[in-house]
Each structure stands twice: as C-alpha cells, then as structure tokens.
Design a protein around this nucleic acid. Structure first.
Length: 710
RNA sequence: GGGCGCGUAGCUCAGUGGUUAGAGCGCCUCACUGACAUUGAGGAGGUUCACAGGUUCAAGUCCUGUCGCGCCCACCA
C-alpha cells in the first residue's frame, strides 16, 4: 500500500480515476454486474453545439450525476444518456457570424456550401461541452451519445411529422408571424425576448370623412401608436364598444393620411379604453391583435413591410423600399408637415427581439406550417393534472398550465438552412429545432426503428433500449425551457409512445452572480466552472456548488463554498490517512463485516447509530431532490461525528488492549460506508481512497459498490 | 398589467409556531501535541430575523398591507 500524501492533490487523481471508470465500462448499463432488475434512466438535456460549459450546465450535470451514481450504488441498472443538439437558429447564427469576418453572408455561399461549413463547425465544436462534462465527473454512457441529426434521429422526425400530417394536425397557412429580418426566418412566440426600450407614442389625427358639417361634430379621430410606419397598412380604426366618447363615430369612415385610403371605424372588445386615446389603428398585417381583429371584421391584409424590414410596393411611392426605421422618420415628418400629428409622448415599452441574434422582430403575414395544439395541449395538461408527471418544485406547474391553456398553434417551419427538412415534396423550409427536441426522450432510444408498429402506435421490441429505458425517471432542467421544451416532450411522448416520457421534472436553481444578476458571457459576469475545477479540483467544485442548492431558490454564486469543498476533501483524505495508519500497523486481518456487537464501547455504538441515521436522512433528501440538505448532513456527519468525536475517542480506545481490535474495525467500517455515501457528491476522491482500502471482497470500483443498508 | 419568489451575522445561505436564532467563508486570540495549519481549541459579530399591523398561551416561522430586489408570463397599440 502506497502511503497517502499529507495533502489531497485532486489534479493527480482526477484524470486517472476518470480513465479507470471509462475502462471499467460501468457507465454503460449493459456492463453493470449483478441482477439489477430495475432500471433508472436520465436523458441529458442536450447542450447546443454552439456552447461551452457554464454554471447552469455544471449544476444540472451535478444533479443528474448525483442521482445516477446514487441509484447505481443502490443496485439499479442506470442509464444516463448524453447527447447534443444541432440547435438550428443558434448554430446557423453562429456560423454566419464567422462568415461575417470574411465579409460574407450565407447567401453568398449558397445553401449547399453553407451547410458544409456548418457541418465543419459541428465536427470541431460539437462535443466541446460533453468533453467538459467529463472533467466534472459525469458518469454518462458515452457509447450511447446521440446527436439530433443522426440518421436514426432524422427518421424519428420524419415519422413524427408525417404522423401529424396524416392526422390533419399539421397544416399550411398564411398568418401573421414573428419574423427575424436578420435570420430571415419565422420564430415561435417562445423564441422571442422582450427588451425594455425607451420609445415614443405618436398621436396621429385621422380625418373623418363627409362631415356634413354640423359645427360641433368632430373632424378627426386621434389614434396613438408606437409604430407610425405601420399606419400605411391600416385597414380600420377600432374603439371599445363601451366607450362613450366614440359611440357616434362607429361605422363612420376616416381617410388614412398620406395614403388616402378610406377605412372604417369599428368596435371591438379587445380595445383598451384607458390606453392612449381609446382609439386604435388596426394594421392586420403587422400586429397579432390587429390580425385577429381583422379576421373578425373581414378586413383586408395589406403588407407594408417585407421580410427584409423594408417598405413594400403596397405603400405610396415616397416610402417604397425604405427601411422601416427610415420610413418611420419620414412618415412622422410628413404627418407633422401636413398637420396630422397631434403630439408625441415619451413611452417605455417592451420590444420583441430574436432570442438568438437580438434583432428586433417584425410581425408580417407569411405562409408557414403550423401544428394544431388543442388536443396535444390537452394531453399535456392531463398528464400533470393526474400527477403522472410531477414538477419539483411544484410551483412550476403553474407556468406550464398557464402556457398550455392559452396556447396558439405552433409555427413549426423555419426559413433557415440548418435543420431537418420538412419531409414533403418540394419543401425548402426546415423544421423548428424544438420540433426535434420534443422527440428527444424516445428518438434517442431509437424510435421508431425499435418499434413494432401496431394499431395503437408503438410497441417497442423487448430487447430494445426503448423497452428497457422508456419512460425515463427524471428530467432535470432549467426553468427557461419548461414550455419551449418540457411541455412539448410531454405531449410528444404521450402521442407517439402512448406513455409519459418521464415521471419527475426537476427544475434546478438558477445560478446568479453575487449581485443577484444573471450570469452573462457578454457582460463578463459569468463564472467558468472549468476554472474552478482547475483551481480547487472537481470534487471541491461539485461539493461547493451542490452544498448551496437548498431548494428551488436561486443561488448567488460565491467561491467561499468551493473553498469549503476543498477543505472538506482534505478532511476526508486525512481521516483516511489516520485510519490506514492504524490498520497497517496491525498484523491482524480486520473483518469489517463482523463488527462484534458485544464488545462495543458507547462511542462505537454512537457513531454506528449516527451512521445509520445519516443513511436514512440522505436517502430521504435525495428522494426529494434536496441535494444541499443531503450535502450538509454528510458534511456534519463526517467532519463532526466521525472526525471530531469518534476518531478522537478512538485514539484513546486504541491504547486499550481490550478495545484495540474492535476500534480498528469500527474505524474502517465507518470510513467505508462514508465513502459510499459521499461518492455521488465527491466521486473522484472517494474512488481514489476506495482503490487503496485494504478490505476483502472489494469491487472493481466504488462506483458499483453496495449502498449502505439500514 | 398579471403571477411567482426573495429581503435572517461583514459575505453566501440554513432555519417542520415552542428552550439563550444556526452553518460555511471572512475576522480576532491561542496552539504546528504523529490524520489533517486546506487543522484544532476558544471568541467577537444579529439594536433579534426589511417595515407596519394582525392571529396565537407562543411568530423569523401563519395572515394583511407597505417598501426594496429578482424572475416569469401578457395581443395596452
């Protein structure tokens, strides 16, 4: 037995230990020893191929690794399946940014060459995060790594699309949709970010036609708008039916300034009588609400802004071809000159922008593919209502229900190039990247190939992964994609597999800066977990982070806890040194399995009892996703109960011939069981120590030992 | 505009209505005695838990309101 160094040096052991695990093959459930009848499965939320590890990933990885390692020790057939996401818009935007350095656009290259470029990118950066996860100690089954554009995965997408299509749930239609003029694509409502901007509220006077002029009647109706350039597409002015101010104007015509078009004054409940003047200009082509009002009132749709954010030929000559922002300036100037501008107010409002490139969104009418959401939303709601799927913390179910209850049909087509083609003849569009993500829980397990189709849908072949691992146990993710991703996996799972995709949805805390702000790469407020691992070691980083996760509550990250983690690792190391020193002096074989109950001192009994109690409490905490609480208990047990109290007492007992042997046995017994308990949290150091432990009946790895029984 | 969460020691956070409110980090004093100075022993630090009311025999813990902070949702143009 090699002597342990006085100070634990993580760098010396982490790489070796990770290789030991890889060589063992035990990350793969097929290689696990023993019977292991029950499976336990987690699928990793696939990181984008554009990214590198940040604190959110690190935390999420720890949560999943702790659960998997714990269940593996408990004798489950554990699968933690890793993978990566092609991340349509995000990746495309990223590669376009690279191209920009060469002063090129994707259109300069053309579709084929551009896609070649993206695949090169994928090859280079596709596995960056997954490789970083290994540094954290993630025990994923790398042999099952999936990519959303794998051939098999593409088959799943095709199958799913056609299924919906045949059912009549996917249809093509022209609607007002969110359009990113930079990415040149449609976006779903969930792909917008709202940013507060200081703008103006322009009050514009629309002259009322045919005033057979009774002296007192109004000559104008004034509307307020934040986007005067859209007025060129106005098809009506709407007021609330209850608004007394305008009652006598309903049905009258107004002449649209600058355009000369005659449009009507209509009534609609959707108009808020408290906002602005209570009269709203209705532009069905460039506003969601206006579009809906337009449908109800049979208004024509005239598109005045095109896909490049420029004015179309539907507008009067002076404005044609202008960028919408230029058109705005000119229109305001002209309105002012012609006396139609009543006043301008400062106004702060939320402006939608593209969640990937931050360009301001235009709303334009466009032909797109939509997936009907009514029935699917109902399935998704039911699964959570009936508690088949539980959110932890439960409060997040509200966000989920809220979205599903007010859902609109999902615009699933995108006008980008990087993604899955819509599997119909002659279609150039590609699918929303989230359409493929929605199939993750079963597409990664080789649906539909693993299926024997029958009338009721998919029946997985017995030997397939799909049969063995679906439904999965836990989905752990960030709150930001509850609707974008989680909800869609739930209804997809039920629709295609006839079963929910996972039983629990764990929404982990968000890691904020010390100031309580979001960590952001561009602001330089992010903390790089890889740096922490370099500085303190992976175990210290793991323990320090998880120690702070006390519930759904967001955490403000401070390095202090990582310092604590490092000290704790050193404590584990040195307690081991002590125990090993005692045992190596002894010529007698220590039989830890047979701690003689009759010869125990009160200190012996106490530590054994406390150990049992700790096992029980840690189990309970982990069952309930209380990771921080479990870490606290283990810390207190190991440091205070074991080191401060028992080891100190043991030093005395070791002087007494009567107790000497028994004390050694208890020391080794408690140490071994502590290692097991600690292993999910600090896997490297515990494995390293286990490898050096002089015990009989040793497993190849601590990773596959037996979790302490109570 | 609606919803959710938070405001406890210098910092980051724990605290199932019930004894003198806890931990880690930081700070101070002492101790390098064979596991560990990434340690051990001891200590200071909360006008008592943002503020104001209320329920209760009893409130950091429950209720109402106010202020401050953060997040999510939303078709006020």
């Amino acid at each position: 037995m090699k002597k342990l160094a006085k100070v634990y040096a993580p760098k010396k052991v982490e790489g070796q230990i990770y290789n030991l695990w890889l060589r063992s093959g035990f990350f793969n459930p097929d290689n696990l020893p023993g019977e292991r009848k029950k499976s336990y499965t987690i699928l990793i939320p696939p990181p984008n191929i554009t990214g590198s590890l940040h604190m959110g990933h690190a935390l999420n990885t720890l949560v999943q690794d702790i659960l998997i390692r714990w269940k593996r020790l408990q004798g489950f057939r554990t699968l933690w399946l890793p993978g990566i996401d092609h991340a349509g818009i995000a990746t495309q935007a990223r590669v376009e940014k690279e191209l920009k350095k060469e002063q090129k656009t994707r259109f300069d290259l053309g579709r084929e060459k551009f896609l070649k470029r993206v695949w090169q990118w994928k090859k280079k950066y596709g596995n960056v995060i997954l490789d970083q996860l290994k540094k954290l100690g993630a025990s994923c089954d790398w042999s099952r790594t999936r990519f959303t554009m794998d051939e098999k995965y593409c088959q799943a997408i095709e199958k799913a699309f056609l299924h919906y299509y045949k059912k009549g749930w996917i249809y093509r239609g022209k609607k007002v949709i969110n359009w990113c003029p930079r990415c040149q694509t449609s976006l779903s409502d969930l792909e917008l970010e709202y940013k507060e901007k200081e703008g103006k509220l322009w009050y514009i006077k629309y002259p009322i036609k045919n005033q057979k002029s009774k002296v007192k009647s109004q000559k104008f109706i004034t509307v307020a708008t934040t986007r005067p350039e859209t007025m060129l597409g106005d098809m009506a002015v709407a007021v609330n039916p209850k608004d007394k101010r305008y009652k006598n104007l309903i049905g009258k015509k107004v002449i649209l300034p600058l355009v000369g078009r005659e449009i009507s004054i209509i009534k609609d409940k959707l108009v808020d009588l408290k906002f602005g003047t209570g009269a709203v200009k209705i532009t069905p082509a460039h506003d969601m609400t206006d579009y809906e009002i337009g449908l109800l009132h049979n208004l024509k749709i005239i598109q005045v802004i095109d896909k490049n954010g420029e004015m179309t030929k539907e507008v009067p000559l002076p404005y044609r071809g202008l960028a919408s922002s230029e058109a705005r300036k000119k229109i305001v100037k002209d309105l002012k000159n012609q006396g139609f501008l009543e006043k301008i107010e400062d106004y702060v409002h939320q402006v939608p922008q593209c969640y990937r490139c931050k360009t301001t969104i235009e709303l334009i009418p466009s032909w797109q593919w939509f997936l009907k959401m009514n029935d699917l939303a109902r399935l998704a709601i039911l699964a959570v209502k009936t508690r088949k799927i539980k959110f932890v913390p439960k409060s997040f179910e509200k966000i989920y229900f809220n979205w599903l209850k007010n859902i609109r049909d999902w615009c699933v087509s995108r006008q980008i190039w990087w993604g899955h083609k819509i599997p119909l003849k002659g279609m150039k569009d590609v699918l929303d990247t989230w359409f493929s993500s929605a199939l993750w829980p079963f597409a990664t397990l080789d649906w539909p190939i693993a299926c024997a189709q029958n009338r009721k849908g998919c029946k997985p072949k017995k030997s397939s992964d799909l049969a063995k691992f679906y439904p999965t146990d836990v989905l752990s993710t960030d709150r930001g994609i509850i609707n974008l991703w989680v909800a869609r996996m739930i209804f997809s799972g039920i629709e295609f597999m006839g079963k929910i995709p996972f039983k629990k949805v764990y929404i982990h805390a968000t890691v904020l800066t010390k100031e309580g702000k979001r960590m952001s790469k561009s602001l330089g407020t992010g903390v790089d977990p890889i740096n922490l691992i370099e500085k303190y070691g992976a175990d210290a980083t793991r323990f320090g982070i998880i120690y702070q996760i006390m519930g759904g509550q967001d955490i403000r990250f401070v390095e202090d806890n990582i310092v604590m983690g490092r000290k704790f690792c050193n404590k584990i190391w040195n307690a081991t040194r002590f125990v090993l020193q005692q045992i190596s002096e002894s010529k007698t074989q220590i039989k830890i399995q047979k701690v003689n109950k009759n010869n125990l001192t009160s200190a012996d009994r106490k530590i054994l009892n406390t150990l049992n109690k700790t096992v029980k409490l840690v189990n309970k905490d982990l069952e309930n996703f209380r990771f921080g609480q479990a870490a606290h208990k283990l810390y207190d047990f190991f440091w205070h109960d074991f080191c401060d109290r028992y080891i100190e007492e043991a030093k005395k007992q070791l002087q007494t011939t009567n107790y000497k042997l028994q004390t050694k046995a208890v020391l080794l017994y408690v140490l071994l069981n502590s290692l097991k308990l600690l292993h999910p949290f600090v896997p490297f150091i515990t494995e390293e120590i286990y490898q050096r432990l002089p015990i009989k009946r040793k497993e190849k790895c601590l990773m596959i030992e037996k979790w302490p029984q109570i």
